[in-house]
Design a protein around this nucleic acid. Structure first.
Lengths: 355, 355
DNA sequence: TTGTAGGCGTTATCAA
DNA sequence: TTGATAACGCCTACAA
C-alpha cells in the first residue's frame, strides 16, 4: 500500500464550505490530483499514457484513484479530446442472430480496450441508416461500422466528409469506400447451386424472402442463377415473398413453389429459417428429404445441425466478422497512418442429410 | 423560405484569418446564432424548448440550422447539462431473441424522443454486470435498465448512490429497488405444470439448462415443482444440464431424462430451443407427440407455432416489456417527481398440438 | 422573451 | 517528467 498525504487520510471528514459546488457527487480528477499531490495534467497523463509518468507519482496517483473510487467522466474527456471511444454500429436487425453474433464478438474485442459500441437498428431501411449515422456522428465516434455496401448518396457524403474510419461489414465487392470485411454473397449462391448439381439434382430452385430490402439475400439469389445459367439450364426457377424470412413463411413458400413447378428436386433458401419452415411442410405432406427434394440454406442457424434430417447450409463467418472488424479498427486507432482494406472471410458449405 | 441576413447568404466565402480555429469542421451553435442574428442561448432554447422562443426568431433559427446543416454536439451538451440522453441497458445475452425483441421495442420508443440506448452484454455474469454498470455510469446516463432482480451487492450500492432512475426488467418480485417491469417466472412454471395435469399427464418432468447462471429459468423450474407438490405428487422429476439452452442439447437432455425415468409422459422445458431439440429426438426414435409424450416450453420462439407438430409454449411479453420500460422512463423524465413502480405484464399460454 | 457570463470535467499545448 | 493554461461546445442561472 502506498502512503497517502496525511491531510487526506481521514476520508470521512468533510468541509462543505470550502468545496466548490459541483454537478455530481462523484470525485473528479482534481480530487485525485489534490490527494496525490500532483497536477491534473499528471493524473490525466497517468491514465492515458502510464509510461510517461514516473513510478513514484504513478503509484501515488493509483492509490488516490482507488482510495476515492474515482471514475473518469467520459463525456468531459470526449469533449476535450473531440472524439469519444464510441463505435457506432448500424445493423439491419437485432432479432437476426447473424448480426447478434457479430456484435457479441465485436463487443468482446472492443470492451477490454475501453471502446463502447453504440448500436443502431436500421430495420433494413437505408433512410433510417442515414438518420442513425447522423445521430451517431454527433457523438464524435472513433469509428463507424455499417452493414452491407449499399447506402444512400447522403450516407456516403457524410461518411467521407467526417474523417472517421468507416467499415462496411458482411459484404465485400469491387469498389471500396474505406474498409470492407465480409464475404461475397454471389459466391454463396453459386456454391449452393453447384452443390445441388453435384448431388445429382436437375431442376433446382431458389426461395427468397424480402429481397427488395435485403440486398444481400438478393445477391445470393443472383449468384444461384448465375450458376444455373452457367450449367446450361435456362429455366430459372424461383419463388420470392415480400415478408421477412421466418419459419412461418417458409412452409407456404415451398408449397407455392411446388405448386408452380412440381418437378423441382432441389431448393436453395435465402435463409435457414425459411428452410426449417419448408422442412416442417415436407413432414406435413410427406415429401421425403433429400430423396424427393433436397434442401440447402444459408446461415447455419442453431437448429440446422440438429433437426431430423439435419439441414445442409452455407455458414457465414458471423463472429469472425465482428472480431476482424474490431481488430482492424484497433490497429488503425493505434496507427492512424494505416488505411482501408478489404477482407474476404469466405463461407463454409456444411453438407448434411438434407442434400 | 425564411430570408437570411445578407452577410451569410454567400455560404462559400471563407475568411480563415478571422475565424477561431476549431477541432471539427462541423458548424456549431455559435454559427447558427450568428447566421440567425441571435445569441447562442436563444438557439439552445429553440432546440430544447421551442415554445419559449418567439415565432420570428424560431423561424430564423430553424432556417439557419438547415442552411448550415447544423447537428448539435451531444457530448458538449451532455457535459454542460451533466447528463446525456443515454439509456444504459444491460442484458445477459444478445443472441437470445427474447432480449433482442425487447431492445428493438425499447429503442423504437426511445429513438424518436432523442434517447440513445447503450447496450451492454453481461453474458449472464453478475460480475460483468457490475463492471458494465460502472462504465455506463461514467456516461452520465439518463437511466439504467438491468435484466432481472438478482445483482451483486456492489451493483446495488452504485445504483442507489447514483441518483439515476433504474428499472429491472423481465422479472418482478416482492421488494423493489426502484422499478420492476416484467412477470413472475414462478407463475410460468406453475402454469406449465397445471396445463400438463389438465391434459391428463401423470408423470411430468422439468428439463432446464444453465440454471446456475440463468436464475429466471431456475425460478420457472421452482414454480413447476411447487405445482407438482401442490398436486400431491412427491416425485419431483427433472434433468438439468450446465450448458446454455439450445436445440443441440435439447435432444440429449430428453434422452437422458427418459433413460432415468421411462414413465415420464409430459415435459416442461425452460426454453423453446430445448424443446425443439427434444422434438427432433422424438422424431428420430419414434416417440409420438403428444400421445406418448407431451411437450411444453417457454418463449414462443419463431419455430414453435410452425413445427410438426406445433409446440405448446408460454409466451413472455417480449416487446411489451421494452415498450413499457421506455414509457415508464419517458414519463419520469417528463415529471421527475414520479417514483418507481412494479408492472406485471403476465405471460400467455399458447396451447398447440404438442400437449 | 432574449442576452450575458460562468461553468461542466477533461485533454492538449506549451514552457519549465 | 511535470505543471499552467487554454480550449472543447453547449447549458443555465441571472439579469435585462
Amino acid at each position: 500500500m502506498q502512503a497517502l498525504p496525511k491531510k487526506a487520510q481521514n476520508g470521512t471528514q468533510e468541509d462543505h464550505a470550502a468545496l466548490p459546488r459541483r454537478a455530481t457527487g462523484r470525485p473528479q480528477m482534481s480530487d485525485v490530483a489534490l490527494l496525490a499531490g500532483v497536477s491534473t495534467s499528471t493524473v490525466s497523463r497517468a491514465l492515458r499514457m502510464p509510461d510517461a509518468v514516473s513510478d513514484l507519482l504513478r503509484g501515488r496517483i493509483d492509490a488516490a484513484i482507488d482510495h476515492l473510487g474515482y471514475v473518469p467522466n467520459i463525456v468531459a474527456g470526449g469533449l476535450a479530446a473531440s472524439r469519444t471511444r464510441v463505435i457506432g454500429v448500424i445493423v439491419p436487425s437485432l432479432n437476426n442472430s447473424f448480426f447478434a453474433a457479430t456484435i457479441e464478438a465485436m463487443d468482446a474485442a472492443f470492451a477490454p480496450k475501453g471502446y463502447q459500441i453504440m448500436l443502431g437498428n436500421s430495420g433494413y431501411s437505408l433512410e433510417r441508416e442515414a438518420d442513425l449515422l447522423d445521430s451517431f456522428l454527433s457523438w464524435s465516434p472513433s469509428a463507424i461500422v455499417l452493414t452491407g455496401r449499399n447506402h444512400l448518396r447522403r450516407t456516403l457524403k457524410r461518411v467521407v466528409s467526417c474523417d472517421v474510419p468507416v467499415v462496411e461489414m458482411w459484404e465485400i465487392g469491387d469498389h471500396t469506400l474505406d474498409t470492407a470485411i465480409g464475404f461475397s454473397h454471389r459466391a454463396v449462391g453459386e456454391m449452393a447451386a453447384k452443390h445441388l448439381y453435384a448431388r445429382n439434382k436437375q431442376r433446382i430452385a431458389f426461395i427468397g424472402a424480402a429481397l427488395t430490402s435485403d440486398l444481400r439475400a438478393k445477391e445470393r439469389g443472383a449468384g444461384f442463377f448465375d450458376a444455373v445459367r452457367a450449367a446450361g439450364r435456362h429455366d430459372v426457377l424461383s419463388h420470392t415473398i415480400p415478408e421477412r424470412a421466418s419459419v412461418e413463411v417458409g412452409g407456404a413458400a415451398l408449397a407455392a413453389l411446388l405448386e408452380a413447378h412440381p418437378s423441382v428436386d432441389g431448393v436453395f433458401f435465402s435463409n435457414d429459417a425459411l428452410m426449417l419452415g419448408a422442412l416442417f411442410e415436407c413432414q406435413r405432406v410427406g415429401i421425403k428429404v433429400p430423396e424427393q427434394l433436397a434442401l440447402i440454406g444459408f446461415g447455419d442457424m442453431d437448429f440446422s445441425a440438429w433437426s431430423t434430417p439435419t439441414l445442409s447450409t452455407i455458414r457465414p463467418p458471423r463472429s469472425e466478422i465482428g472480431l476482424e472488424v474490431a481488430r482492424h479498427l484497433l490497429a488503425r486507432f493505434a496507427d492512424p497512418a494505416l488505411g482501408g482494406t478489404t477482407i474476404d472471410l469466405g463461407c463454409q458449405l456444411m453438407q448434411r442429410q438434407s442434400t
